[in-house]
């Protein structure tokens, strides 16, 4: 049981880690509280599932999901920069619109992908032709590791390019980067598109991994992503971009692992998960303050004695 639980947590940690990397781009790099996530994650799932069921290649379907996500991010960015709508509200508007759009794309609230080809089943079939003894129970694990390494390497590299540096400066000090001749509206839109493209990719992969796309699967995605980012930051730190993104992935794994731990000990039922996640994020966000006041109390005690 333990081995299986660990395997599932690593798999989920990796695939949802792609989503968490997207959240990292907006929350940490751009300093933009983007709530489009709850809409762009199921958008990826909806686009991929609809296209697969419609007979398209799962690879085309996944690529289409990435593009759809980028478009969603673009719209949030456009609302914020050209429309001067605050970041929170721009994200909420996109997210809310996407709920209807996702239903339109899917035509119904749920699309099962059982007996449909997925990127995983196709690759697994190809590998088995070459290595008949391939341990199929590790297919997801191995493919997720490969995909995540590609995504992480691309993201790390991007953040070291001229454009990537400009993006980081936009979140850090917009006045400074404008005075260096960079259009911060443009960098924001690029960052949001990139972020939501990753989040939609995660949605498309999760749909193919779980075997269905559901219109409600996005609820709480942002909180799960934030939890991963915060846990990663707290435990691994952000000495460099490489370390920081590694931390996000580790945070994503730890988050999924603690959830399966809670569920397997029957400490809570599945429907309590969103509440638990919110509590984890609240705890992580307030912990530094608690620590401070605790230290102060302690030093007072020492001073008294």
């Amino acid at each position: 049981m333990w081995q299986n639980m660990l395997l599932k947590s690593v798999e989920q940690g990796l695939v949802f880690g792609i989503m968490a990397l997207g959240v990292y781009i907006t929350f940490k790099i751009l300093n933009f509280a983007d709530l489009s996530v709850d809409g762009s994650f199921p958008l990826g799932a909806a686009v991929a599932a609809s296209l697969i069921v419609g007979g398209h290649s799962p690879f085309t379907a996944t690529l289409a999901a990435i593009l759809a996500g980028a478009l969603a991010g673009y719209i949030t960015g456009f609302l914020n920069t050209a429309g001067k709508i605050s970041d929170l509200l721009a994200g909420i508007l996109t997210m809310t619109s996407l709920y209807s759009i996702n239903l339109r794309i899917m035509g119904k609230p749920n699309i099962p992908l059982l007996n449909q080809p997925t990127v995983f089943s196709i690759i697994q079939g190809d590998i088995k032709k070459i290595f008949p003894g391939f341990p199929t129970q590790y297919t997801y694990l191995i493919l997720f590791i490969i995909i995540v390494i590609i995504v992480k390497t691309l993201l790390d590299a991007f953040l070291k390019t001229q454009l990537g540096l400009a993006l980081r400066a936009t979140g850090d000090n917009p006045q400074m980067i404008r005075s260096q001749g960079v259009n911060t509206d443009m960098t924001k839109i690029i960052g949001l598109s990139f972020s939501n493209a990753l989040i939609s990719l995660a949605g498309a992969l999760v749909a193919q991994y779980q075997g269905f796309a559901d219109v409600g699967m996005g609820i709480g995605t942002i909180i799960a992503g934030l939890a991963s980012v915060i846990i990663g930051d707290a435990l691994v730190g952000e000495k460099s971009i490489f370390i920081a993104t590694l931390g996000v992935l580790f945070g994503s794994f730890l988050y999924r692992f603690s959830i399966s731990l809670v569920l397997s000990f029957r400490l809570a039922q599945a429907s309590d998960l969103k509440l638990l996640t919110a509590l984890v994020v609240i705890l992580a966000l307030t912990a530094p303050r608690f620590k401070k006041s605790l230290n102060r109390k302690r030093s007072n005690i020492y001073a008294g004695s």
Binding site: T161, L163, G164, D172, M176, S179, Q180, G181, V182
Partner: peptide, 30 residues
């Protein structure tokens, strides 16, 4: 505080200034 990007390194800040007025691209910043 206004003239530099605090959480970026000295060389990354200089790189941004170095490509000022140019079209920034996907070439390495450093």
């Amino acid at each position: 505080m206004l003239g530099t990007s605090p959480s970026m390194t000295i060389e990354e800040n200089l790189s941004l200034a170095f490509s000022r007025a140019e079209n920034i691209s996907l070439r390495w910043g450093l």
